[in-house]
Structure formats: structure tokens, C-alpha cells
Write a protein that binds this DNA or RNA. Structure first.
Length: 138
DNA sequence: GCCAACGTTGGC
DNA sequence: GCCAACGTTGGC
């Protein structure tokens, strides 16, 4: 089972917004980057992803689950990009900050560290576990 | 098909 | 608010 990391600016779409979207979840749109698109396409229903706040907060704050696989994004005029649906699973007890990730030598290979601009990223099983532990357990 | 110019993202 | 990194666009 693959794991992922989704970034959002809390001013546009925050963890609280995601929680309010409830069990049904909602679409994760706005991706306009081919690397990110490939990652979206690889996602399967039931897989989990970290929810990361960029710019403000700069921390992983919660876990979401994919509820619908890749489908076209109607807000994209080019028709090239798509989206998935996600629902909030649970918040981390303690958010894991970018600072903490950068300070952990085991996490230096994370794309978040190496290519901070990619908005949809894969996370390895090892990284997933370390961050879950760091965040107070799942 | 190359590459310069431009726009956007996101950390600081 | 600044600027570096990256992607995309468009002229040639």
C-alpha cells in the first residue's frame, strides 16, 4: 500500500476545511503539474496521505484517505489534469513541522525536503512510520 | 527541438 | 516581501 503527501495552503484549503467536508470527503483539485498528476493517477482507494500545510504552519497536520481514484478535473480548461477524492481520517496529535523533518537525518530523502514545490508526493513506508511516531502515533 | 523569458510556488 | 527553484510558454 502506497503512501502520499498532499500539500495545501491553509488560506485556500485547510485541514479544518477538510474535516468539515466530513466522511464523504471531497475532491482534491487544482493540480496543474505533470509529476503531481502522475502521483494522483497512481493513488488507489483506501490509501492514506499526509495533509501538509504549506506557507502558513509548514507542518503535517493530519491523515486523509483516498475515496475515489483519479478522474478528470472539470475546473481544468485544458482537460489534461484530474483529481481524486479524499476524506479526513484523523489529525496528528502533534503536528510534524518542516523544521522537525529537516532536523531528522532519516527524512532527508523526502521530496518535501528535496523538491519542496511538488504538491503531490509519494512517501515511503519508512518515512510514513517515522512521521506517524513523531506525530504521536496513529 | 532548443532555450530565453516569464509566472508561480513556497521557504525564509 | 524577497528570492531561489522549478515548470511552462513561445519565438526562432
Amino acid at each position: 500500500m502506497a503512501h502520499w503527501l498532499l500539500k495545501s495552503e491553509p488560506g485556500k484549503w485547510s485541514w479544518d476545511d477538510q474535516v468539515k467536508a466530513g466522511k464523504e470527503g471531497t475532491f482534491w483539485n487544482g493540480v496543474r503539474n505533470h509529476s503531481a498528476k502522475l502521483n494522483l493517477m497512481a493513488m488507489k482507494v483506501g490509501e492514506q496521505a499526509f495533509f501538509y500545510h504549506s506557507n502558513e504552519g509548514k507542518a503535517i497536520v493530519g491523515l486523509v484517505e483516498i475515496t475515489k481514484p483519479y478522474y478528470p478535473d472539470p475546473s481544468d480548461p485544458s482537460g489534461k489534469f484530474g483529481m481524486v477524492d479524499v476524506r479526513a481520517v484523523k489529525p496528528l496529535k502533534r503536528p510534524v513541522t518542516l523544521e522537525a523533518i529537516k532536523a531528522d537525518e532519516r527524512l532527508q530523502d523526502m521530496i518535501l525536503v528535496k523538491n519542496s514545490r511538488l504538491s503531490v508526493q509519494p512517501v515511503t513506508a519508512a518515512e510514513w512510520k517515522i512521521i506517524c511516531d513523531e506525530g504521536g502515533g496513529v
